[in-house]
């Protein structure tokens, strides 16, 4: 589903859009628990469930930013706890490197956040989202990578 372009009518009305890729086994369950536990966190995230955080191709991140996301959150199991044993170890290498590349080309590194959240850590999930929304609000809308095709 396409993410519609942000329209800023006034500075206060702008709300960041964050695309969150959640691993099916830990983080998605963690988010679910946050909901069941009635924990409050900002409604700025759009969750996409992936089988493992290592499924997140860096191209997904760029595409999300191009199509209107202001930030991308990738959440996976804690290293060592991967359902597929080693998946998130690869995620860790890949996204650490990718983040440094984004920073190298002058992109705010805060727009890509990676966190490990287990199925039991509903509070940590809610905190992560809160923290990220705050950070992105400070940065303002992502204009730099956004497609101007429309």
């Amino acid at each position: 589903m396409p993410v519609k372009e942000n329209t800023v009518t006034n500075a206060n009305a702008w709300e960041p859009k964050i695309v969150a890729f959640l691993c099916n086994w830990c983080s998605y369950a963690g988010a679910d628990l946050a909901g069941v536990s009635r924990l409050k966190y900002p409604a700025n995230i759009r969750i996409i469930r992936v089988p493992c955080s290592s499924r997140v191709n860096p191209q997904f991140i760029l595409r999300a930013l191009q199509r209107g996301a202001d930030g991308v959150l990738v959440v996976g199991c804690h290293p060592g706890d991967c359902h597929y044993v080693t998946g998130n170890y690869f995620t860790r290498r890949r996204l650490t490197l990718f983040k440094s590349l984004l920073e190298f080309v002058g992109f705010e590194p805060e727009r890509l956040k990676v966190r490990w959240v287990s199925a039991a850590e509903a509070g940590r999930f809610a905190e992560t989202v809160k923290e990220m929304v705050e950070e992105i609000k400070l940065l303002g809308p992502n204009r730099r990578l956004q497609d101007s095709m429309l």
Binding site: H78, P79, G80, T86, Y89, F90, R92, R93, L95, T96, K99, V114, R115, W116
Partner: peptide
């Protein structure tokens, strides 16, 4: 490849 003790900035 990976190493279990790779630097972790995401913890």
């Amino acid at each position: 490849a990976y190493a279990p003790d790779d630097p972790d900035q995401f913890a």
